[in-house]
Nucleic acid binder design. Structure first.
Length: 597
DNA sequence: CCCCCCCC
């Protein structure tokens, strides 16, 4: 049982006067959630006692919120504070108030059966010492906007005041604007311009971090000219007088309810003392299984092993016509779940997943396809491969020891029945509902019976290059030419090009099939079918007969297509699967219920 | 005051 003498009696008074006390032991009398608009980024304050005094305004850094949320830090627990900072805020204009922010703690004795130790007296809110007010000459440099004077000459003064007047980033809020932070720039964007109905302009933004937390800052218009070159990534600055406002989670992945905007009064002064107490990067990793429940569009930090990697694929953006390059990587972690990660452009081209590295992404965007979740990099994402951080090392260890052999649940898998983007229909709906008129085409699925697999022109000779599916020209000299690759080859590969008539109770429809799906239906590879046909022109017809009246689930895209001046509906079976009766029946039942309702 | 970030 803990006794009174175990607490570091009197240490609170010292700490709240600005002294650094080594690992003081305190009792947590209670914890309170600080009202916040964003439940994901809640903050807690503690009622803290050293046995002699108590304070009610000790905050904990959000990084250790889980101590409270898990219930681990029960009331009356005895803790050892491993790291803390104090900071003076001045929100009344007259009186300086010091706040204690706990950065790291160890629970020595869990609360549970403990009761309050001693009879701690509330420490007064205000420091008795006379702290410099904002009009003091010692900090006037911070409010003078002059690049030249802000630099080196201020170093000594910086050092003398850094522990007294600096506010932790986690204490910033829109309700208190008289602050100075000491923060490292962990990320800086390029200058971007915009044009919209409200006008045009330019901006850049940066991520700022300190021991207590992180915040995003944006610089607009003419202020860009003043600050862009001044601010360098990885350097530490004193920054004050920004406008602080609520974030929009869709565009901000930093762990803070607020972000800030530079104003004409904002001051930035480089901090030249080593500033080794300011961390380099902060992550708020979300385990991959949790991504399944995160709203589309949210930005998150993810760490995982690159289990598999696709080649780079090039295609035209439907909206802009721009050529895009992407690479898809399956990323897994200790939750034994995997997620599809799409890398774009240079990130896609430069990525090498062959050695199954650890990949860390700060600010990946959550997306959805066919009912499964995926993640994608966006311009503000930061990608790191095998970074030297604890999480990366333990993940690698997990992968080598067991992860590589574990069964992995892919949260990006597209769902069969009731797929969010692929409604179940009857074949007659395609015509009756005028599907395929839109720019993107219409996606749907149904259970269909194969009436006829067309055996004429059922396959073609294609470029032998792995990713290329272009038909080759037979040069009649033993060589085959691919116009797309602009190369000639001594060989080619066969690819099936299926065309099938499929029916359900309501009607029938002609579908085009890509080689991969035609192979699934026939149960044979393109190459086998092509080679069989070399000796027997009727080979495909004989094979096709065997699959007539077989049933499959057809996932289709219908889209208007113009060929030789003729525009008509073309429906492609983008995916053909055997019937999963559990899923199929569930869908039928739910449609029956809808009819009855 | 941006916030587009692409495809199946």
């Amino acid at each position: 049982m803990a006794t009174r003498h175990e607490l570091s009696e009197g240490s609170l008074q010292m700490i709240m006067k600005g002294s650094q006390i080594q690992s003081p032991i305190m009792q947590v009398l209670g914890s309170k959630r600080i009202a916040s608009s964003n439940s994901d980024k809640e903050r807690f304050r503690l009622l803290l006692s050293d046995g002699k005094h108590a304070i009610s305004f000790a905050m904990i850094t959000t990084q250790i919120n889980d101590k409270v949320t898990t219930g681990e830090l029960a009331d009356n627990s005895i803790i050892q504070i491993k790291r803390y900072i104090t900071s003076v805020i001045n929100n009344t204009g007259k009186r300086n108030k010091r706040v204690l922010v706990i950065l790291e703690m160890e629970i020595l004795v869990p609360g549970g059966q403990l009761t309050k130790i001693g009879d701690p007296q509330q420490l007064p809110d205000n420091d008795e010492e006379d702290l410099p007010s904002k009009s003091d000459s010692s900090i006037s440099f911070l409010t003078t906007v002059s690049k030249d004077t802000l630099m080196n000459t201020t170093t000594n003064r910086n050092v003398s005041m850094q522990n007294q007047l600096i506010h932790p980033i986690s204490s910033l809020s829109p309700y208190q604007n008289n602050w100075v932070i000491k923060a490292r720039v962990s990320n800086k964007s390029n200058i971007r311009t915009w044009t919209n109905s409200h006008g045009e302009g330019k901006l850049f933004n940066m991520d700022l971090i300190d021991e207590s937390g992180e915040i995003k800052a944006t610089v607009f218009r003419e202020l860009v000219d003043r600050f862009y070159d001044l601010i360098e990534v990885d350097k530490v600055y004193y920054i004050s007088k920004c406008q602080v406002k609520l974030i929009n989670k869709q565009f901000n992945n930093l762990k803070n309810d607020f972000e800030m905007t530079f104003t004409e009064y904002t001051t930035v002064a480089e901090c030249n003392d080593a500033a080794n107490d300011i961390p380099q990067t902060r992550y708020d990793f979300i385990s991959i299984d949790k991504i399944a429940h995160i709203e589309v569009g949210t930005l998150i930090d993810v760490i995982g092993i690159c289990k598999t990697t696709s080649d780079v694929q090039t295609f035209q953006a439907r909206s802009t016509g721009r050529e895009l390059k992407k690479r898809e990587v399956t990323v897994i972690d200790q939750s034994n779940c995997g997620v599809a990660l799409t890398l774009w452009g240079n990130d896609a081209e430069n990525f090498d997943g062959s050695l199954q590295p650890v990949i860390v992404i700060k600010g990946a965007k959550v997306g959805e396809f066919g009912g499964g979740k995926n993640i994608s990099t966006v311009t503000l994402s930061i990608i790191k491969i095998n970074p030297d951080i604890l999480e990366a090392h333990s993940l690698k260890q997990w992968f080598v020891n067991e992860g590589m052999r574990n069964n992995i649940t892919n949260i990006s898998a597209t769902s069969g029945a009731g797929g969010f983007r692929t409604p179940w229909i009857n074949i007659k709906d395609v015509e009756e509902q005028g599907m395929g008129q839109g720019e993107r085409g219409d996606y749907f699925q149904f259970k269909g019976t194969v009436l006829l697999y067309r055996s004429e022109k059922g396959f073609y000779k294609a470029c032998p290059t792995a990713e290329c599916k272009k038909k080759v020209t037979d040069l009649q000299n033993g060589m085959y030419r691919c116009e797309k690759c602009n190369m000639e080859f001594t060989n080619f590969k066969y690819l099936l090009l299926g065309s099938i008539n499929v029916a359900d109770w309501s009607g029938n429809i002609w579908l085009s099939l890509f080689a991969s799906e035609a192979e699934k239906i026939l149960g044979l590879s393109s190459q086998v079918v092509g080679e069989a046909s070399e000796n027997d022109p009727q080979a495909l017809a004989k094979i096709a007969e065997k699959i007539h009246f077989k049933q499959f689930i057809f996932k289709c895209r219908a889209k208007m297509n113009t060929y030789n001046d003729e525009t008509r509906l073309k429906t492609i079976a983008i995916r053909v699967d055997p019937i999963n009766y559990k899923e199929y029946n569930a869908q039928v039942l739910s449609r029956i219920k809808q009819c009855l309702a």
